[in-house]
Design a protein around this nucleic acid. Structure first.
Lengths: 217, 217, 217, 217
DNA sequence: AATGAATGAGTTTTCATTCAT
DNA sequence: TATGAATGAAAACTCATTCAT
């Protein structure tokens, strides 16, 4: 707003920075969509939060749906990147699985907007997510790790037989995801604050234990 | 259009049936809110689906928020009633817990609109649910059953020690709830239809097994 | 605006008069569309001119295109009615044709908005007019009269042979229509006011003479 | 994107061709205005069709109205040039008039965008056309030819007396102009394709005959 | 001369809500 | 109790125009 460097007129930073504008819009949109859902989100609010003219939403993305879609793509890219970075090489199945569970928990804790937006998508029958190019590819790396870890654990006598890797994948996700996604209602029902440091620590431990105990031979 | 019985102008049957009208509005509203969320739902659509005039929404409920709240109360009553009817007397802890898990799964399967609406509530920080009178009471009966069953199972040497009944309650709910709530996205990720008869049966079995195995001493 | 009959509370006229509202909207729309074309017309302006809330345009018609279409239908009905009322029975071909020409001239003079809207339609390739139900029916009565009058005049030795009734229909319309439709430009080119009483009288006479002279045997 | 010839930065050929750019914009604008009218035309579309940046419309012309005006001037110049090239010297009045009528018909057939834009101008009360410098001059040459031809024909006993050259000018124009301007609606009414080769030939002949017959003594 | 980002005012359309009967 | 007209505020989206490079 105020320019503090009087002697460097050409160094005035960030006037006309399309990449930055686009990014600011996406950040604001992600926030707005996660708070209010697709239907409840306001284009005006997105622009205001991004600190730019409303028309730029249309200039960069086309319409409300399109920027929503761009947010989904962004979230998707983040996850793919996160999972690509994930590495359990050298760990025994027990350690690998613990790490997987914790990683899943931590990711959801750190990305509450992801949880919120995904819930809205699911209510809407994943209408947009379906159209993400190669969306299904998301499963390959993670499921492969699950499968390999599980079968190796079974072979090593660490895990019991008969557990489907897909069901296990759903269950591990469920145990963390629902905690965050259902937190407001759960807090009301249980009458306690579930997002306190200690509550989070307790839940994280419970999830790991719950799964590992279930897999005992 | 034209009434052919001239002598009984008031005998025209079923025009004016307040109770029925109210019920039809609630049914339509539940459907509309579950499909589109609070923000996305349309008062026009609710009235149209109920087959009555839009003004009656305001006549019976006050405003959009109020009918949404009425839907929440209705859902809440249903659950309370369902849980009140729930009975594990005479069952040993193992059987009781299995029944609890299955019951939870079945209830969610049969009430997809409940799942959808609750998700929207959670995104909105449970703003309305909080205001349900005695909402917290919902926990008492169910948690008491959990606690009793769990501690008795531990005492009987059927279940391992150290599992918090609250965490167990969350986990059991999570394993079923997330399956339904995340179904559209999960289907896309896993590339299979999760709402088929066989998929539902498999998941139900997995959830019961997963929990029971985890509780082994 | 002001109610002058104080003693008849139930006679207070025109609060809630849907038919009147719809009519007022149509009148305002016809005016607005004729002045500014479909693209240039403003829904706001239509509502303001009708003295009602803008939303009523959508309530009664759907959208801007729909009220435009309704205006076209109205104009079409007017013409059909006008032509249906047209009667040359008992007149000899010469008199009948003169009457036809004058009637055509007079109708266009009295309906300048018709001319303006039709021009816009034509620029837009008659996109809407095409969809008027039975639009083609408009030709039947008028063309039939032309054909009959013409052939009878030929038979009676009043008119020369070899004139196509369709060409004649187009020409008679053209001679009047273009005068009104092109009036602003023509006035500028010729440097005189073409809509003055005397100019109109002169043109009307010219058109009749021009056609009748042309048909001489 | 990157220029690889470091020593001839300005030698990049044909980027920057002001005259060509201006021309391309005018061509695109004429097309756009004729299709959509002044109100319906889009500056974006004009630039896109011209294949240049939108800002150049403002650079070269000022604003939307100004480029519209430039199109009118262009059309006006074309007509003036066309009429200046027109020559009936050495022809007897009969032949001269036939040539005039045919020329008028042919010009309109070949310039449908002229017809479209003029219609829009007329709906708008010729607001822009009025301001064309020396616009009225357009009449001088053509009307003079009409007057001379007509009076000479009367003198020669070829044409009847009492026909106003101005009315004749309007009528001749009307008979051709309306055919093209009203073609979409007329086609719909008459149920036939009026722009086919044979239909055009028939109309052209009819117009010439119609006028010449009318002028018989 | 040329580009594309950025702006603000406007324009259509939607929607919850109230009014009159 | 029931209906449909009517309203005003707000929302999405458009568009001519200007700015910065």
């Amino acid at each position: 707003m105020t320019d503090f460097r009087l002697n460097e007129p050409c160094a005035v930073p960030r006037r006309r920075d399309p990449a930055s504008t686009r990014r600011k819009l996406l950040v604001a949109a992600r926030r707005e969509f996660s708070r209010n859902g697709l239907a409840g989100a306001r284009v005006d609010e997105i622009a205001a939060q991004a600190g730019v003219n409303k028309q730029l939403v249309y200039h960069y993305f086309g319409d409300k749906d399109a920027i929503y879609f761009a947010v989904l793509e962004w979230m998707y890219d983040e996850i793919v990147q996160h999972e690509r970075a994930f590495n359990v090489d050298g760990l025994d199945p027990d350690q690998a699985l613990r790490k997987l569970i914790q990683s899943s928990f931590d990711y959801l804790e750190q990305h509450p907007d992801f949880v919120a937006i995904l819930n809205d998508e699911n209510r809407n029958d994943a209408a947009h997510v379906r159209n993400l190019t190669h969306f299904a590819d998301i499963r390959t790396p993670l499921l492969r790790i699950f499968s390999r870890t599980l079968s190796q654990g079974v072979r090593d006598g660490l895990f019991r037989k008969g557990v489907s890797p897909e069901q296990l994948y759903i269950s591990i996700t469920a145990l963390s995801y629902f905690y965050f996604s259902g937190m407001p209602t759960l807090s009301a029902i249980l009458g306690k604050d579930l997002k306190s440091k200690s509550a989070l620590r307790a839940r994280r431990k419970h999830v790991v234990d719950f799964v590992m105990q279930s897999l005992r031979p």
